[in-house]
Simulated scan of single mutants.
Amino acid sequence: MSVSFIRRIAAPKKALTTAAVAAATVGMALTSAPAHAAPAHSAADAKTVAHKMIPDAAQFNAFSHIVERESGWNVNATNASSGAYGLVQALPGSKMASAGADWKTNAQTQIKWGLDYMKSRYGSPVGAWNFWQANGWY
């Protein structure tokens, strides 16, 4: 068997092996996101987070009614006329930075801020919902 024949067989195998290793490496890099990546929550994710943070059914339901009407559980909801932002429509949205630097994209941070706001202003989410029903805002 000649050396040139062996080189012709080995070269394509080496190229394929190199390509496979490179593809596997890229695939691993693409599938492993850092743990600190900013979460972008869907409406279902945001509701799940809220349910964990608000175990009392009456308080959760009141909070949920408000968020459904204010933002439709959209973490990025923005009121075009007022500029209110997020799940609970904070005005200005940057107020939520007091609950976390990731306030623009993290449902948990927005929920935490919203709960604190409702508790300080209305005593609870139920109090906020009662006010919302009477006034159409909170």
Score class of each variant (00 low, 15 high):
Phe5Asp: 14
Ala77Asn: 08
Trp137Asn: 14
Leu87Ser: 07
Gln108Gly: 14
Met28Cys: 12
Pro12Thr: 03
Trp113Gln: 03
Val49Phe: 06
Val67Phe: 04
Ala22Leu: 14
Val26Leu: 14
Asn106Ile: 03
Ala128Leu: 05
Leu16Ser: 10
Ala97Cys: 01
Lys47Pro: 02
Ala97Asn: 09
Leu16Met: 12
Lys104Ser: 11
Lys14His: 02
Ser82Glu: 04
Asn130Pro: 05
Pro12Ser: 09
Tyr85Gln: 13
Ala20Lys: 04
Ala134Thr: 08
Trp73Glu: 06
Ser81Cys: 02
Pro39Ile: 06
Arg7Lys: 13
Gly93Arg: 02
Ala43Cys: 03
Ser98Tyr: 00
Gln89Ala: 03
Asn130Gln: 13
Glu68Asn: 11
Asp45Tyr: 03
His65Ser: 15
Val26Lys: 01
Lys119Glu: 13
Ala23Tyr: 06
Ala33Pro: 02
Ala101Gly: 15
Tyr85Lys: 07
Met118Lys: 01
Asp102Met: 03
Asn79Gln: 06
Trp129Ala: 13
Gln89Tyr: 04
Val3Cys: 06
Ala24Pro: 02
Gln108Met: 05
Ala50Tyr: 04
Ser2Ile: 00
Ser32Asp: 01
Glu70Ile: 04
Asp102Phe: 07
Ala97Phe: 00
Tyr117Cys: 06
Trp103Lys: 09
Met53Gln: 14
His41Gly: 06
Ala23Asp: 03
Gly123Phe: 02
Gln89Val: 01
Gly86Lys: 07
Ala19His: 04
Arg121Pro: 00
Ala38Thr: 07
His36Pro: 00
Ser94Pro: 05
Asn130Arg: 13
Trp129Ile: 00
Ala57His: 10
Thr48Tyr: 03
Phe60Ser: 05
Ala77Phe: 03
Ala107Glu: 04
Tyr85Ser: 10
Trp103Cys: 08
Trp132Ile: 00
Ala35Glu: 12
Ala44Gln: 14
Ala44Ser: 12
Ile9Thr: 11
Tyr117Leu: 09
Phe63Pro: 10
